[in-house]
């Protein structure tokens, strides 16, 4: 009996180690820049949905304007680079800080109210930021170029300080490390008091309060942290694409996409947003590429249907059933169906 469980554990660990090895060695045998670019975007989405999840998942509220913080990150580091030659590596912290402050300021009045206020307010705020940027050519000393967006000035060759590389490989490793870090942060928070308080306050605010939790305070901090980390992703996006404009990086569609990937994957779980990105991004890209040529809009009809079906049949996201499947597989190969209930 014990040998079965032992075996199960070994297989489980081996698979996980293999996965990590696999992910970290991809650039050794994948050389096509296009493929790497696709993977980089996949990880970037996983990163952004994971940071969204810090407030949207654990705090149990629904932020629908997170593109604003991606944009704050991208714009801050880029204008600092253009105007003062500040390295984006430093600029990204400035962007993060600004995003955190803005997020906290928005969170303070809205996180005390019913969740709908927060969802609608964040969405309206995101749109407000987009309209502001689209209508502003010059923000103080900085040229932000209104609706046309800005380019990150090209520095010839590989330049670590300028966060610019000729090959895709450095970008791959940077976003992979960033993703690992936010996953670790999420995991860590879920195990300490603030994580318990966030989850409790998200589920039953009154009960949590009567158990000593200042619910709004914890939500506001989660919002700040989430916005901070989201903005770091914004800088990465700017350095990767080297060109961005408000409609894209500050758009409502982008905000919604981040939220829905996390929700379909499984909000409030650690793996959920990553799973969501890994499943949904390829599907939505492929349907967009192949279907919009046939009938524009069809891929979004399908996306809408997927949203509805997941919410009706798996409201906690796809990560639950996938985990079950994985456990079933483990039990199957190690013959532990009887011992380990899943």
């Amino acid at each position: 009996m014990n040998t079965g469980i032992q075996k199960r554990k070994t297989i489980d660990t081996t698979l996980k180690v293999l996965l990590v090895l696999f992910v970290f060695t991809v650039p050794l045998w994948v050389t096509s820049p296009t493929t790497l670019q696709i993977l980089i975007f996949l990880f970037l989405y996983a990163y952004l949905t994971t940071t969204w999840n810090l407030v949207g998942g654990f705090a149990g509220v629904l932020p629908l304007g997170h593109s604003a913080y991606v944009g704050i990150g991208a714009y801050t580091s880029t204008v600092l680079f253009i105007s003062y030659g500040v390295s984006p590596w430093i600029g990204m912290w400035a962007g993060g800080l600004i995003a955190a402050i803005v997020g906290i300021i928005i969170g303070i009045p809205t996180l005390k109210l019913r969740g709908a206020y927060f969802a609608l307010s964040t969405m309206a705020f995101g749109e407000g930021v987009r309209v502001l940027v689209e209508n502003t050519m010059q923000l103080g000393p900085f040229n932000i170029n209104g609706p046309r967006g800005i380019c990150v000035p090209l520095i010839p060759g590989n330049n670590i300080a300028a966060f610019q590389f000729l090959s895709k490989v450095p970008y791959y490793y940077i976003i992979l490390v960033m993703l690992c870090v936010v996953l670790f942060i999420t995991w860590y928070i879920s195990r300490i008091r603030p994580g318990y308080y966030l989850a409790a306050g998200g589920e039953e605010p009154e009960a949590a309060q009567s158990l000593g939790v200042n619910v709004a305070k914890y939500k506001v901090w989660a919002m700040g942290l989430s916005c901070f980390l989201t903005a770091l992703g914004g800088t990465f996006l700017a350095q990767l694409a080297l060109y961005f404009y408000p409609k894209q990086i500050l758009g409502l569609d982008f905000s919604f996409e981040l939220a829905f990937i996390a929700l379909i994957g499984g909000r409030g779980t650690i793996a959920g947003p990553v799973v969501g990105a890994l499943i949904l991004r390829p599907v939505s890209e492929l349907t967009r590429i192949y279907l919009s040529a046939v009938l524009p809009g069809l891929h979004l009809v399908i996306f809408g249907l997927v949203l509805i079906l997941v919410m009706l049949y798996q409201p906690k996201g796809l990560v639950g059933p996938l985990e079950k499947l994985y456990n079933w597989f483990l039990n199957k190969v190690s013959g532990t169906e009887k011992e380990v209930r899943t």
Binding site: E203, E204, E206, A207, A208, Q209, S210, L211, G212, N214
Partner: peptide, 24 residues
């Protein structure tokens, strides 16, 4: 006083309609 401060002070309460954290 706010409920969380009162709880820290040493008064705990239950609700007539129980409010467990259901999914936990």
């Amino acid at each position: 006083w706010k409920p969380w401060d009162i709880c820290k002070l040493g008064i705990a309460r239950t609700f007539q309609i129980v409010k467990p954290f259901q999914t936990k």
